[in-house]
């Protein structure tokens, strides 16, 4: 009985139950398989999060975003006044998170690679690209650079999925992917 001490003092010399030994073996093999899968996916998988990140002053990031917006804005989104930016394929694109906006709206080309720079200029935010379902944390003072290749045309929402205050649920951005 487990709530009383083992009667025989030398419990560590008791033999193992046969199936227990088998199960421990299965568990250890499975553990190695799962560990190995993460490493193997870095080699064969196409979805690995970038290891590139920089410390950055929020003002500098905002300035770079604004520079891209000035250069590549193609239109405004409806009557919202939010610029839609179409940067050249293969270029560096900036997406700035702030209370409570993703700025600007990006228009990307399908099957082209972009270097997406993600950062926040105030609190933490969560980049949740839907419906493809990619979720990345966005920090102030850190700029993550993700090489991204949209593989489907359409309209994608960017939900903020890190709680960021009372306007959190209104923080919605967009990415267009065009053929």
């Amino acid at each position: 009985m487990a709530i009383f001490p083992p009667e025989k003092r030398i419990w560590w010399k008791e033999p193992l139950h046969g199936f227990e030994l088998v199960w421990i073996g299965i568990c250890l093999v499975w553990a190695i398989v799962m560990f190995g899968t993460m490493i193997v996916w870095h080699v064969i998988g196409e979805q690995n999060l970038s290891n590139t990140a920089y410390r950055i002053d929020p003002d500098v990031f905002a300035a770079r975003t604004e520079a891209m917006v000035t250069q590549y804005t193609v239109r405004e989104e409806g009557d919202t006044g939010i610029p839609v930016v179409h940067p050249p394929a293969g270029s560096d694109v900036y997406l700035q998170a702030s209370l409570w906006q993703w700025y600007p709206i990006l228009e990307l080309e399908k099957d082209k690679e972009y270097r997406l720079h993600l950062s926040s200029i105030d609190w933490q935010h969560g980049f949740s690209l839907q419906p493809t379902n990619i979720n990345v944390q966005v920090h102030p003072g850190y700029e993550m650079v993700i090489t991204l290749k949209p593989n489907k045309a359409g309209e994608f929402g960017i939900v903020c999925n890190e709680f960021c205050g009372i306007g959190h649920h209104n923080m919605l951005g967009r990415i267009y992917v065009v053929e």
Binding site: S128, Q130, P131, G157, V159, N161, F163, H168, H169, N170
Partner: peptide, 20 residues
């Protein structure tokens, strides 16, 4: 699994400038 955010008051995004 369908992407719905945690800690979120309104998954209809009623008051957001954009829609999704």
């Amino acid at each position: 699994t369908l992407g719905v955010s945690r800690r979120h008051w309104d998954i209809n995004f009623t008051d957001a400038a954009l829609s999704f």
